[in-house]
């Protein structure tokens, strides 16, 4: 079923099982209300997340992607989130080259005890995506625009692309 038109945007979350998925559970148990847009995909560790998952999610039509793992140094698998941090940081810089507004992707750290923090993260990120609006469909983007976007991204580093 598609997201509710006019009400919701398509936001996908990748959460590690041990900290952030638990943090989202804690938020639920505490009845910390959140926007309904986000759909969570559970993965064992943020280090399991291939950056291509995120690129693919955004290219396939998601309006935003949120990744969350254990706080650095507190990984259930000792060092998975360090890998995640490096990969995701590179991805964030690479997104403009794909013609994707890097504001549509974010990553954060939420522990299993931080229900209230999770509520805040979801709320802020959802607002951020709503401010950006629905992602432009790739079939609607002309080759010219993509070339311009890529040129801009390469020329000016983190310059955001309003495609």
């Amino acid at each position: 079923m598609p997201v509710l038109t006019g009400k919701e945007l398509r936001i996908v979350g990748f959460l590690c099982n041990w900290c952030s998925y638990g943090g989202a559970d804690t938020a639920g148990v505490g009845r910390f209300g959140q926007p309904t847009d986000l759909r969570i995909i559970r993965v064992p560790c943020s280090g399991r997340i291939d950056p291509l998952f995120i690129a693919k999610t955004l290219i396939n039509g998601a309006d935003g992607v949120l990744v969350s793992g254990c706080h650095p140094r507190d990984c259930h698998y000792a060092e998975g989130n360090f890998y995640a941090r490096r990969r995701l940081e590179v991805l964030k810089r690479f997104l403009p080259i794909l013609g994707i507004d890097p504001g549509r992707f974010d990553y954060t750290w939420v522990s299993a005890s931080e229900g209230q923090r999770w509520q805040k993260v979801v709320t802020v990120f959802t607002e951020q995506i709503h401010a950006l609006g629905p992602a432009p469909r790739f079939d609607a983007v002309s080759a010219d625009m993509l070339a311009k976007a890529a040129a801009g991204a390469l020329g000016q580093g983190g310059n955001r692309v309003a495609a």
């Binding site: 079923m1 989202a24 148990v29 209300g33 926007p35 309904t36 969570i40 995909i41």
Partner: peptide, 27 residues
């Protein structure tokens, strides 16, 4: 599919919750 902690307990909009639950069942 986690439709309690991640759906029913964090939002009161029945239409949106039902819709979201279907999505979570689907994945």
């Amino acid at each position: 599919a986690n439709i309690r902690e991640h759906v029913s307990w964090i939002g009161k909009d029945r239409e949106a919750n039902t819709n979201k639950s279907v999505d979570l069942v689907r994945i």
